[in-house]
Design a protein around this nucleic acid. Structure first.
Lengths: 201, 201
DNA sequence: GTCTATACACGGATAGAC
DNA sequence: GTCTATCCGTGTATAGAC
């Protein structure tokens, strides 16, 4: 029973750490703040994690997996016009950002934190590689739904689309300008539509 | 004479702080580390700055101004083809990033740091507004050089272009993949060329 | 103004009782 | 395994000699 409880506490502490980080930032997520958030005594920390670094590694892994890949969520009906498929996908992505802006801000914060630690830098790189994959998959899914193909090589297009969405997201997280963000996102949609052509096969 | 020296020390400490931050990250830029970098005694700190917060405000202001606005450096010859003007501008921007990647990484780190402090959050917002202005100016300059006009409203285009460059930059700072970054940047150039048309007037 | 010594708080980690 | 009490390092800031 104690074994199961120990695992639960690990989970509890990871989630508590994320809660604190979203609310106060990574720097304020001290061991004391985390255990307080979890409602546990300070001593509980060190028989769940060898060190704070170990907790942070778990947090980074979890938050990065949980963070929607900046991939465009492919949505829409089979055979719909490409413009509709693209706009629906981007809109879905954007709504998720708008629903949890602080969590996404934390994602960027953690990425930078990870880059500063030799042991975690590789994790950040692998995660961005994963984002690229997910973006590529979404673009392929959209092409299939709209029955089109992209006139730009998929790896290039994925990197460009990921960058554009990432940048637009970051800008919005800073200025929270809904109108301008929507207009820019729409321009990205127009771009995607412009590089689509009817499927050959 | 002491007066002049005090101002010099302020400068000295700001630059030392930036040096430490670029090398070790914002978190490691303690007062002790900063004065050590500057070759000054610890006591020197507090008759140059009221507090560490005050130093950080100065640092944020300076680094954000110094950071090239993610604006496209307009370059090229009057009357050159639009494709050449655009590619030259983007290439110039990218070279600056490549020449000081750590400093640009710090820019992102400081932006997030600023967003976490109520007193500095507004500074981050104003800075991004400045980036938007600079991007818009560069786009206008490119249009003038190539004797074209943009078929997308300038405010929308500026936000989109800023986001795209910001995102591509961030992705590259993480994975340092020169080839793919160049390809994606090139795709952005193609996009810009595609939304240009000969000037009407 | 300039520097040394130090106060004081906080954070990570551990010792040791239960 | 669980928790309390504590150690020790570090960080900001200040006191006070010069």
């Amino acid at each position: 029973m104690t074994r199961r409880s120990a695992d639960e506490r690990r989970e509890q502490l990871i989630e508590a750490a994320i809660t604190v980080m979203i609310r106060d930032g990574v720097a304020k997520a001290t061991t004391r703040a985390v255990v307080a958030q979890a409602g546990l005594p300070l001593g509980a920390f060190h028989y769940c994690f060898r060190s704070k670094e170990e907790l942070l590694q778990s947090v980074v892994e979890r938050i990065m997996v949980r963070a929607l890949a900046p991939a465009v969520a492919a949505a829409g009906v089979e055979g719909a016009p490409v413009a509709e498929v693209v706009r629906t996908g981007l809109h879905t992505y954007w709504e998720r950002i708008r629903q949890s802006p602080d969590e996404h801000l934390l994602t960027y914060e953690l990425t930078q934190y990870a880059l500063r630690r030799p042991g975690l830098a590789d994790l950040a790189r692998r995660q961005y590689a994963h984002y690229l994959d997910a973006t590529r998959d979404s673009l392929q899914a959209m092409a299939r739904l709209a029955d089109i193909e992209w006139t730009v090589p998929l790896p290039v297009l994925a990197r460009y689309a990921l960058g554009a969405l990432d940048g637009l997201t970051l800008t919005w997280l800073i200025d929270r300008d809904d109108e301008h963000a929507a207009a820019a996102l729409d321009e990205h949609a127009s771009y995607l539509v412009s590089i689509a052509r009817p499927a050959a096969s």
